[in-house]
């Protein structure tokens, strides 16, 4: 698996888009820090960007990489390699290279700014951890979609729909449900609703840590009331881990049954 990981990783590192992605985060970090001067505000703005962008890029790169490396995969399948290690290797190659772009792209400007002396270091680390989780989750989801769809365009379409649904539409439905049923106790519903969407979960997680009640909204407030800050943090990280493991397991399972 490590050999495949290495090849996939370096294959992606040679691609122009990895650098564009890295450069984007790098510029974003610099602009936010040196034009804004307020570290905690910069972290919040970054959160809003990462929470939408990391899933989007993870989805696009995941689907594109899978379809573009079909030939490579077929070549590997005839070699004495386990199917699970072929697909896990490719998946980790994509997810790790994207996460590296994120961490390096944001980490370097923040280090330059003097993050290590600042109190925001934990908030910032949590931001990078959630971003990495989101990258892993959405790359795994997109690999799942690509594995289940032979047709490139259809697979790409489904992957984009999934992103659109979880990043935008889900919140709309969620809010509508909360307004429609406002006469009923909605604590449980909103807790479950948050946990079923990794993007909402990440947002709640970061806001819990930042402890900004004004931005937390209804679900965040309930989360805090229900679990308290520490327990809430642990629970949401646990949920993110679950969100990563389940799609990866399905991916391996699906890959074992597929014909090439």
């Amino acid at each position: 698996m490590l050999k495949i990981l290495k090849y996939s990783f370096f294959d992606l590192m040679r691609s122009r888009w990895s650098y564009v992605y890295l450069l984007f985060y790098f510029l974003l970090g610099i602009v936010l820090l040196f034009l804004n001067n307020d570290l905690s505000k910069a972290v919040i703005t970054l959160m809003n960007v990462i929470i939408v962008l990391a899933p989007l890029i993870g989805t696009i790169f995941g689907v594109m990489y899978y379809y573009n490396s079909r030939e490579f995969t077929e070549l590997l399948l005839a070699q004495p390699l386990k199917r699970s290690s072929i697909f896990l290797g490719q998946y980790l190659g994509v997810a790790l290279s994207l996460s590296m772009s994120l961490i390096l792209g944001l980490g370097v400007p923040f280090l330059m700014y003097g993050l290590l002396q600042s109190s925001a270091i934990w908030n910032f680390s949590l931001l990078l951890i959630t971003g990495t989780f989101l990258t892993f989750i959405f790359t795994a989801l997109s690999f799942n979609i690509a594995l289940s769809n032979e047709n490139k365009i259809r697979g790409f379409g489904y992957a984009m729909l999934l992103w659109l649904f979880l990043a935008v539409i889900y919140d709309g439905f969620f809010l509508m449900a909360l307004i429609l049923f406002e006469d009923y106790p909605l604590d449980k519903l909103s807790l479950v609703g948050t946990m079923l969407n990794p993007i909402d979960l990440s947002r709640t997680l970061i806001l819990l840590k930042l402890d900004i009640s004004a931005l937390m909204g209804y679900t965040g407030a309930i989360f805090k009331k229900f679990f308290g800050t520490d327990y809430g943090l642990i629970l949401s990280i646990f949920m993110l881990i679950l969100w990563t493991i389940l799609p990866v397991m399905r991916m391996v399972f699906k890959a074992k049954k597929k014909d090439f």
Partner: peptide, 8 residues
């Protein structure tokens, strides 16, 4: 491909 395990 069945012999190679590519087709199940």
């Amino acid at each position: 491909k069945s012999i190679l395990g590519m087709v199940i």
